[in-house]
């Protein structure tokens, strides 16, 4: 499991993360919510080894993540960034095959197994239909699904996603959250997802963390974390809970 204890991070002279205690087990789907600039992405960057100069501890099965080589870490934790800039027109399939980088041999060619894994990952995220298209012709939503496919091709036990649903239409938002839940339940992966979709997080996630100005709060079930009072204190907006006739609770923002 991934675990941080009293994790603090300073960038420049600004304290970004303050004494965070976070954990993610295999088989669970965790949502991370918070306003812009609260430190969500920084937390993901520490967990994926990009910011090594933190204090406190960040461990993967009790091994400090800074002690792991990039290759080893990339075989354990896959990260879906908010967006990525492609300077050359790689095809969609080529981008997903880059997810196999931590595994390729010395020569570095794509094996039949790599291609099969890439194909399955692209089918899971509804990308296979545009596999041969150059990545610079894809829409924002298609690119986001492609980045998820690439992370799946890494075949890791943990996957961390940074706002994977911002550019997605409603149907793909739902199918993405359904996929993430299935990854946790059927493939026993540990899934953590930064999102602004409070209602989707409430319905799909097992646990919810809230981040406010570098402080990590919550970590419990959606029902106990996403209360009207906490949403008001973290996001500064008023909301109400509405229950539909099938018994599901929704947040309505006023």
């Amino acid at each position: 499991m991934i675990e941080t204890k009293n994790l603090s991070l300073t960038l420049g002279d600004k304290l970004i993360l303050k004494e965070m205690c976070f954990h993610l087990k295999r088989g669970e789907f965790v949502g991370i919510l918070g306003p812009n600039g609260s430190g969500k992405t920084s937390l993901l960057r520490v967990l994926s080894g990009i910011y090594p100069n933190y204090s406190g501890s960040a461990t993967l099965y009790l091994i400090p993540t800074k002690n792991l080589k990039p290759k080893g870490l990339a075989q354990m934790i896959a990260v879906v960034p908010q967006e990525e800039h492609f300077p050359f027109s790689y095809s969609a399939l080529e981008v997903v095959l880059m997810g196999r980088t931590p595994y390729v041999g010395f020569a570095g060619f794509d094996s039949a197994e790599d291609c099969e894994i890439a194909r399955l990952a692209m089918q899971q995220t509804d990308c296979w239909s545009f596999a041969t298209r150059p990545v610079d012709t894809l829409s924002g939503g298609e690119k986001q699904r492609l980045l998820i496919a690439r992370a799946l091709a890494q075949k890791t036990p943990f996957i961390l996603l940074d706002e994977p649903s911002t550019h997605l239409d409603l149907a793909h938002q739902q199918s993405t959250f359904t996929l993430l839940k299935r990854l946790a339940y059927e493939q026993n992966m540990g899934v953590a997802c930064i999102t602004h979709e409070i209602n989707l997080a409430h319905q799909y996630c097992d646990r919810i963390y809230l981040i406010k100005e570098g402080h990590l709060l919550g970590g419990d079930t959606p029902k106990s974390v996403l209360t009207v009072e906490k949403i008001k204190s973290v996001f500064g907006i008023s909301s109400q809970m509405v229950t539909t006739c099938d018994g599901k609770a929704y947040h309505v923002f006023l």
Binding site: Q75, A78, V79, E84, P87, E94, M98, T101
Partner: peptide, 14 residues
């Protein structure tokens, strides 16, 4: 290939 996506992307892909 992965380095052309930037230092962070390269690191994420090992």
């Amino acid at each position: 290939n992965v380095m052309s996506l930037g230092e962070e992307a390269a690191l994420r892909l090992g």
